Amino acid sequence: MSIYDWQARAACTADPDLFFPPGTTGQSRDDAELAAWICTHRCYVREQCLAHTLHVEAGLAIDRRHGIAGGLTPRQRLDLDPTRTAA
């Protein structure tokens, strides 16, 4: 049994491309909103996903964060990064 077994139960496994839109406007924005809704309302492992993603992305710049994870956009996850310091 792996600590990553939760990933097989993630809602994003049905359509992974939806959770990694190529841009931030138009259809990409709509896809990101739908992906965030699916995470928030339909995923049984949202909390594990968000905790894992925040751990993996800790200290990364915004341009190194991608996709919707745990129902949040890269910008929203950046705002939760405990390694960030106020300017």
Rank of each mutant, 00 (worst) to 15 (best):
residue 1 M to R: 15
residue 2 S to L: 10
residue 3 I to G: 12
residue 3 I to Q: 15
residue 6 W to P: 06
residue 6 W to E: 06
residue 8 A to T: 14
residue 8 A to S: 14
residue 8 A to H: 13
residue 8 A to G: 10
residue 10 A to H: 09
residue 10 A to C: 06
residue 11 A to I: 11
residue 12 C to L: 02
residue 13 T to L: 09
residue 14 A to Y: 00
residue 14 A to W: 01
residue 15 D to P: 00
residue 15 D to S: 06
residue 15 D to A: 04
residue 15 D to Q: 11
residue 16 P to Q: 03
residue 16 P to M: 03
residue 17 D to L: 05
residue 17 D to T: 03
residue 17 D to N: 08
residue 17 D to H: 07
residue 18 L to R: 09
residue 18 L to Y: 01
residue 19 F to D: 02
residue 19 F to Q: 02
residue 19 F to P: 02
residue 20 F to S: 01
residue 22 P to W: 01
residue 23 G to Y: 01
residue 24 T to F: 05
residue 25 T to P: 00
residue 25 T to L: 06
residue 27 Q to D: 14
residue 28 S to C: 06
residue 29 R to I: 03
residue 31 D to M: 13
residue 33 E to K: 14
residue 33 E to V: 08
residue 33 E to R: 15
residue 35 A to D: 12
residue 35 A to N: 12
residue 35 A to V: 11
residue 36 A to H: 07
residue 36 A to C: 10
residue 38 I to S: 09
residue 39 C to A: 12
residue 39 C to G: 09
residue 40 T to C: 08
residue 41 H to C: 09
residue 41 H to E: 13
residue 41 H to Y: 13
residue 42 R to I: 01
residue 42 R to C: 10
residue 43 C to T: 13
residue 44 Y to K: 15
residue 45 V to T: 11
residue 45 V to L: 05
residue 45 V to M: 04
residue 45 V to E: 03
residue 48 Q to K: 14
residue 48 Q to Y: 02
residue 48 Q to T: 01
residue 49 C to L: 07
residue 49 C to P: 05
residue 50 L to N: 07
residue 51 A to C: 07
residue 51 A to L: 08
residue 53 T to V: 08
residue 53 T to Q: 12
residue 54 L to N: 02
residue 55 H to M: 13
residue 57 E to A: 07
residue 57 E to K: 09
residue 57 E to H: 05
residue 58 A to N: 12
residue 58 A to K: 15
residue 59 G to L: 08
residue 59 G to D: 13
residue 59 G to T: 12
residue 60 L to A: 09
residue 60 L to G: 02
residue 61 A to I: 03
residue 61 A to M: 11
residue 62 I to S: 08
residue 64 R to D: 06
residue 65 R to D: 01
residue 65 R to W: 02
residue 67 G to F: 03
residue 67 G to D: 01
residue 69 A to E: 09
residue 69 A to D: 04
residue 69 A to L: 11
residue 70 G to E: 01
residue 72 L to H: 04
residue 72 L to S: 03
residue 72 L to W: 01
residue 73 T to I: 00
residue 73 T to V: 00
residue 75 R to L: 08
residue 76 Q to R: 09
residue 76 Q to T: 05
residue 77 R to T: 06
residue 77 R to M: 02
residue 77 R to W: 02
residue 77 R to Q: 08
residue 79 D to M: 14
residue 79 D to C: 08
residue 80 L to C: 06
residue 81 D to E: 10
residue 81 D to F: 05
residue 82 P to M: 09
residue 82 P to C: 10
residue 82 P to E: 07
residue 82 P to Y: 13
residue 82 P to T: 11
residue 83 T to E: 14
residue 83 T to P: 02
residue 84 R to K: 15
residue 85 T to F: 05
residue 85 T to Y: 09
residue 85 T to R: 15
residue 86 A to F: 07
residue 86 A to Q: 15
residue 87 A to C: 06
residue 87 A to I: 14
